[in-house]
Simulated scan of single mutants.
Amino acid sequence: MSAAPDDACARVWAALESLTDPEIPVVTLRELGILRAVRATPDGLEVVITPTYSGCPAMGQIEDDVRATLDAAGIPARVVTQLAPAWTTDWMSEAAKEKLRAYGIAPPHTRPAPDVSVMRFMRRPVADAVSCPHCGSSHTVVSSQFGSTACKALYKCLDCQEPFDYFKPY
Protein backbone atom coordinates (compact mmCIF):
# COMPACT_ATOMS: atom_id res chain seq x y z
CA MET A 1 0.00 0.00 0.00
CA SER A 2 1.42 3.36 -0.97
CA ALA A 3 -0.94 5.46 1.19
CA ALA A 4 -1.04 5.39 4.96
CA PRO A 5 -3.55 2.79 6.21
CA ASP A 6 -5.91 5.44 7.63
CA ASP A 7 -5.86 7.40 4.37
CA ALA A 8 -6.46 4.25 2.33
CA CYS A 9 -9.40 3.23 4.54
CA ALA A 10 -10.86 6.74 4.29
CA ARG A 11 -10.65 6.51 0.47
CA VAL A 12 -12.59 3.22 0.56
CA TRP A 13 -15.29 4.65 2.85
CA ALA A 14 -15.60 7.69 0.57
CA ALA A 15 -15.86 5.52 -2.56
CA LEU A 16 -18.57 3.32 -1.03
CA GLU A 17 -20.52 6.11 0.71
CA SER A 18 -23.25 6.35 -1.94
CA LEU A 19 -23.48 2.64 -2.83
CA THR A 20 -27.12 1.64 -2.39
CA ASP A 21 -28.82 -1.62 -1.54
CA PRO A 22 -29.90 -3.45 -4.73
CA GLU A 23 -33.33 -4.27 -3.27
CA ILE A 24 -33.98 -0.88 -1.66
CA PRO A 25 -32.19 1.70 -3.83
CA VAL A 26 -33.00 4.67 -1.57
CA VAL A 27 -30.72 3.55 1.28
CA THR A 28 -26.99 3.02 1.27
CA LEU A 29 -25.22 -0.10 2.44
CA ARG A 30 -23.60 1.96 5.17
CA GLU A 31 -26.96 3.37 6.37
CA LEU A 32 -28.38 -0.16 6.53
CA GLY A 33 -25.38 -1.39 8.50
CA ILE A 34 -24.45 -3.98 5.86
CA LEU A 35 -21.13 -2.25 5.19
CA ARG A 36 -19.46 -3.10 8.50
CA ALA A 37 -15.79 -2.19 8.32
CA VAL A 38 -12.84 -1.23 6.21
CA ARG A 39 -9.52 -2.45 7.53
CA ALA A 40 -5.91 -2.41 6.48
CA THR A 41 -4.29 -5.84 6.79
CA PRO A 42 -0.77 -7.01 5.91
CA ASP A 43 -2.29 -8.43 2.69
CA GLY A 44 -4.04 -5.18 1.72
CA LEU A 45 -7.41 -3.56 2.30
CA GLU A 46 -10.50 -5.50 3.33
CA VAL A 47 -14.10 -4.39 3.12
CA VAL A 48 -16.36 -6.28 5.53
CA ILE A 49 -20.03 -6.79 4.69
CA THR A 50 -22.67 -8.58 6.78
CA PRO A 51 -25.96 -9.83 5.30
CA THR A 52 -29.26 -8.80 6.81
CA TYR A 53 -29.84 -12.53 7.26
CA SER A 54 -27.68 -15.52 6.33
CA GLY A 55 -29.76 -16.49 3.29
CA CYS A 56 -30.02 -13.00 1.79
CA PRO A 57 -30.06 -13.46 -2.01
CA ALA A 58 -28.78 -9.91 -2.59
CA MET A 59 -25.36 -10.56 -1.00
CA GLY A 60 -23.79 -11.72 -4.27
CA GLN A 61 -24.97 -8.54 -5.97
CA ILE A 62 -23.82 -6.40 -3.02
CA GLU A 63 -20.35 -7.98 -3.13
CA ASP A 64 -20.17 -7.43 -6.92
CA ASP A 65 -21.29 -3.80 -6.50
CA VAL A 66 -18.66 -3.14 -3.81
CA ARG A 67 -15.94 -4.68 -6.01
CA ALA A 68 -17.05 -2.73 -9.10
CA THR A 69 -17.17 0.55 -7.16
CA LEU A 70 -13.68 -0.01 -5.75
CA ASP A 71 -12.33 -1.07 -9.17
CA ALA A 72 -13.77 2.08 -10.76
CA ALA A 73 -12.05 4.15 -8.07
CA GLY A 74 -8.76 2.31 -8.62
CA ILE A 75 -8.73 0.90 -5.09
CA PRO A 76 -7.54 -2.69 -4.69
CA ALA A 77 -9.38 -4.40 -1.83
CA ARG A 78 -10.82 -7.73 -0.83
CA VAL A 79 -14.50 -8.08 0.06
CA VAL A 80 -15.14 -10.29 3.08
CA THR A 81 -18.56 -11.52 4.18
CA GLN A 82 -18.74 -11.77 7.96
CA LEU A 83 -21.68 -13.57 9.57
CA ALA A 84 -20.81 -12.98 13.22
CA PRO A 85 -21.91 -10.95 14.93
CA ALA A 86 -25.19 -11.36 13.10
CA TRP A 87 -26.68 -8.23 11.52
CA THR A 88 -29.38 -6.50 13.51
CA THR A 89 -31.79 -3.71 12.64
CA ASP A 90 -30.13 -1.83 15.52
CA TRP A 91 -27.28 -1.21 13.03
CA MET A 92 -29.61 0.81 10.75
CA SER A 93 -29.16 4.55 10.92
CA GLU A 94 -32.09 6.82 11.71
CA ALA A 95 -31.60 8.31 8.22
CA ALA A 96 -32.13 4.82 6.72
CA LYS A 97 -35.35 4.36 8.70
CA GLU A 98 -36.70 7.69 7.45
CA LYS A 99 -35.72 6.86 3.87
CA LEU A 100 -37.52 3.50 4.16
CA ARG A 101 -40.67 5.24 5.40
CA ALA A 102 -40.54 7.78 2.56
CA TYR A 103 -40.07 4.93 0.07
CA GLY A 104 -43.19 3.15 1.37
CA ILE A 105 -41.59 0.57 3.66
CA ALA A 106 -42.38 0.74 7.38
CA PRO A 107 -39.06 0.80 9.22
CA PRO A 108 -38.37 -1.68 12.02
CA HIS A 109 -39.34 -0.84 15.56
CA THR A 110 -36.54 -0.29 18.01
CA ARG A 111 -36.10 -3.46 19.97
CA PRO A 112 -36.37 -3.14 23.73
CA ALA A 113 -33.62 -4.52 25.92
CA PRO A 114 -34.29 -8.18 26.70
CA ASP A 115 -36.33 -8.81 29.82
CA VAL A 116 -34.91 -11.86 31.55
CA SER A 117 -37.17 -11.76 34.56
CA VAL A 118 -39.33 -14.67 35.57
CA MET A 119 -42.41 -12.50 35.01
CA ARG A 120 -41.59 -12.31 31.30
CA PHE A 121 -42.49 -15.96 30.89
CA MET A 122 -45.85 -15.45 32.55
CA ARG A 123 -47.18 -12.79 30.20
CA ARG A 124 -47.73 -12.64 26.46
CA PRO A 125 -45.60 -10.16 24.54
CA VAL A 126 -47.52 -7.20 23.19
CA ALA A 127 -46.51 -6.29 19.65
CA ASP A 128 -46.20 -2.62 18.79
CA ALA A 129 -48.57 -1.44 16.08
CA VAL A 130 -46.89 -1.00 12.71
CA SER A 131 -47.73 2.41 11.26
CA CYS A 132 -48.61 2.73 7.61
CA PRO A 133 -45.81 4.56 5.74
CA HIS A 134 -48.42 6.04 3.37
CA CYS A 135 -50.95 7.63 5.74
CA GLY A 136 -49.41 7.15 9.19
CA SER A 137 -52.32 5.11 10.57
CA SER A 138 -51.55 2.39 13.11
CA HIS A 139 -54.76 0.60 12.07
CA THR A 140 -52.84 -2.09 10.17
CA VAL A 141 -52.80 -5.88 9.91
CA VAL A 142 -50.26 -8.48 8.89
CA SER A 143 -51.09 -10.11 5.56
CA SER A 144 -48.03 -12.36 5.44
CA GLN A 145 -44.92 -12.82 7.56
CA PHE A 146 -42.94 -12.56 4.31
CA GLY A 147 -43.12 -9.52 2.05
CA SER A 148 -41.17 -8.70 -1.10
CA THR A 149 -38.10 -10.21 0.60
CA ALA A 150 -37.73 -12.53 3.59
CA CYS A 151 -36.48 -9.68 5.81
CA LYS A 152 -39.81 -7.89 5.40
CA ALA A 153 -43.42 -8.75 6.31
CA LEU A 154 -46.42 -7.74 4.21
CA TYR A 155 -48.98 -5.51 5.94
CA LYS A 156 -52.18 -3.78 4.90
CA CYS A 157 -53.49 -0.48 6.17
CA LEU A 158 -57.15 -0.70 7.10
CA ASP A 159 -57.60 3.07 6.72
CA CYS A 160 -56.04 3.88 3.33
CA GLN A 161 -56.29 0.23 2.15
CA GLU A 162 -52.69 0.27 0.85
CA PRO A 163 -50.45 -2.78 1.21
CA PHE A 164 -46.90 -2.14 2.41
CA ASP A 165 -43.75 -3.92 3.52
CA TYR A 166 -42.54 -3.75 7.11
CA PHE A 167 -38.82 -4.27 7.68
CA LYS A 168 -38.84 -6.87 10.46
CA PRO A 169 -36.68 -6.15 13.52
CA TYR A 170 -33.89 -8.64 14.17
Rank of each mutant, 00 (worst) to 15 (best):
2 S>V: 15
2 S>R: 11
2 S>C: 09
6 D>R: 14
9 C>K: 13
9 C>P: 07
9 C>H: 02
12 V>G: 03
12 V>E: 05
13 W>R: 07
14 A>T: 14
16 L>P: 08
16 L>N: 05
17 E>Y: 04
18 S>W: 07
18 S>H: 13
20 T>W: 05
21 D>S: 03
21 D>P: 11
21 D>Y: 03
23 E>A: 11
24 I>C: 06
25 P>Y: 09
25 P>N: 07
27 V>E: 00
29 L>K: 01
29 L>T: 05
32 L>G: 05
33 G>F: 02
35 L>P: 06
38 V>P: 09
38 V>G: 04
38 V>T: 04
39 R>C: 06
40 A>S: 14
42 P>V: 06
50 T>R: 00
52 T>N: 01
54 S>I: 12
56 C>L: 04
56 C>H: 01
58 A>I: 08
60 G>Y: 02
60 G>S: 10
62 I>D: 03
62 I>A: 02
63 E>I: 08
63 E>L: 11
63 E>V: 11
69 T>V: 05
72 A>T: 11
76 P>T: 10
76 P>E: 14
77 A>P: 12
79 V>E: 02
79 V>Q: 02
80 V>Q: 07
82 Q>E: 15
82 Q>A: 13
83 L>Q: 12
84 A>L: 13
89 T>L: 00
93 S>W: 01
93 S>F: 01
95 A>W: 04
95 A>D: 15
96 A>T: 02
97 K>R: 15
98 E>T: 08
101 R>Q: 09
101 R>C: 04
103 Y>N: 08
105 I>M: 01
105 I>D: 01
106 A>K: 04
107 P>M: 00
109 H>S: 07
112 P>L: 06
113 A>N: 08
115 D>F: 04
116 V>K: 10
116 V>D: 14
120 R>A: 14
122 M>E: 14
122 M>S: 12
124 R>I: 11
124 R>F: 13
127 A>T: 11
129 A>S: 14
131 S>D: 15
133 P>T: 04
134 H>K: 12
134 H>N: 10
138 S>I: 12
139 H>K: 11
140 T>I: 07
142 V>G: 11
142 V>M: 13
145 Q>G: 13
146 F>G: 13
147 G>P: 10
148 S>K: 09
149 T>F: 03
149 T>S: 15
149 T>E: 10
150 A>T: 10
153 A>I: 08
156 K>H: 13
157 C>H: 05
159 D>Q: 13
161 Q>N: 12
162 E>Y: 07
167 F>Q: 05
